[in-house]
Write a protein that binds this DNA or RNA. Structure first.
Length: 113
RNA sequence: UAAGCGGACUGGGCAGCUGCGGCAGCAGGGACUUAUCACCCCUGCGCUGAGGAAAGUCCGGGCUUCACAGAGCAGGAUAACGGCUAACGGCCGCCGAGGGUGACCUUAGGGAAAGUGCAACAGAGAUAUACCGCCUGCCUUUUGGCAGGUAAGGGUGGAAAGGCGAGGUAAGAGCUCACCGGCGUGCAGGAGACUGCACGGCCCUGCAAACCCUAUCCGAAGCAACAUCGAGCGGAGUGGCUUGCUCGGCCCAUACUCCAACGGAUGGCGUGAGCCCUGCGGCAACGCAGAGCCAAGAAAGAUAGUUGCCUUAAACGACAGAACCCGGCUUACAGGUCCGCUUGUGUU
RNA sequence: GCCCUAAUAGCUCAGUCGGUAGAGCACGCGGCUGUUAACCGCGGUGUCACAGGUUCGAGUCCUGUUUGGGGCG
């Protein structure tokens, strides 16, 4: 497995995910999934100002990243995934967020069982 | 023991597993090379990794750049006095004023007798006056009218011309006197603001967080500053800079500005007005001397997840995330600890 | 991160030098009409973003807070 998680940092990657990717929503998280040509999975996390102040936005990012790290070994293929935090995310634990991400990625076909 | 006042501190700790940022060293591997070393990348070990406000960006400074900094005007800031400081609009001490039984708290607190302006409505009158009144004289049968004196009382107002009492008077009035306030002069104390005492003439509205005057200070912009290297060497415009204006000065066409664009890289960037302990000077803010320590430096942006134990009334719980760095101010904040003091009650 | 700027009626905006808050559109009521629109008449539009201070008195002056908008390589 790739121990370090590749991240998206270009605005064009985010815009492509929003425009062409498939959307999966839950009360605590929104996921945009699209294929890429790199052959590995890359993720991006968006925490807008609506979530809260800097501490609450950092908290949301950490929880999403920790939950994805638990799920990452099961992924396969080349995908770009953008997670958007919602206002409930900061109150959750990463163990509570794990099944939500799992469900989204199974629906998208990133994870095959 | 109840209520309260002032100040200081804290903002959980330890361990296991899975993970993250930085650092230099060691070990292993990769890439480059004809080959080795260095540089670069990865892995493991080791060290280290957010705050009292990191916040708001309100002041002050360091640092950097603007021909390296000149003059004048404009503009801005501050405002009792003495000190501390790199500097400040901050802090300490002290004076005045106001509040509280008190501990103590609040205070943008220079000048209104240099000038201009404002004081709506109400009220007779708003910086000078006489509506109702009071008193005297004349006229009138009376109600009352006219002329003069007066500002004690009424009414309006935030404010009505020193306050209050006594004398005085036709009625009154600092007209006179005592006390108090204010002004001026002198003496004493103090580093000074100022305080105390004596005398004098008889007193002057408020607003300068209205313009203004006086004193002191300020060149501007900000690490997205700026420097170096690389890529590019394209298009358009114009003399430009001195970041409000004028003078003066400087640089020149390889100059300056804008657009497109590499969504370039590295430095700036962590030893600093640093933290901490002791001693000395000072009422204090603070200063001096000596010993010890090195404690984040990212660039989509690092502290998360989970389990157990301990302290505890409770710790899952407050406010909250460094972004060049310091000194302050302001604002937000669950709970807890300590010290000094005041008033009341009870006991001895 | 840094630097500017604004907040007034439901909406778009005025409000000078402090003295009880204005315009247009929209809205409500009445009239006209068989009914509606248009038209005519009347009317309230409001904690001047919030909290302190100066002042006799603040939309306005001063300080702090909140929210929105813009710019800087």
């Amino acid at each position: 497995m790739a121990s370090t998680i590749k991240t998206l940092n270009l605005n064009t990657d985010f815009r492509r995910a929003y425009k062409r990717g498939k959307v999966y929503t839950s009360p605590a998280l929104v996921s945009y999934v699209t294929k890429n040509r790199a052959g590995i999975c890359r993720i991006g996390i968006t925490t807008s100002k609506k979530i809260g102040n800097a501490v609450e936005r950092n908290r949301s990012r950490r929880v999403i990243r920790a939950a994805y790290r638990a799920v990452a070994p099961y992924t396969g293929g080349g995908w770009d995934i953008v997670f958007v935090a919602r206002s409930k995310t900061k109150y959750l634990k990463s163990t509570q967020l794990e099944p939500i991400i799992l469900k989204h990625l199974e629906q998208a076909g990133v994870i095959n069982r």
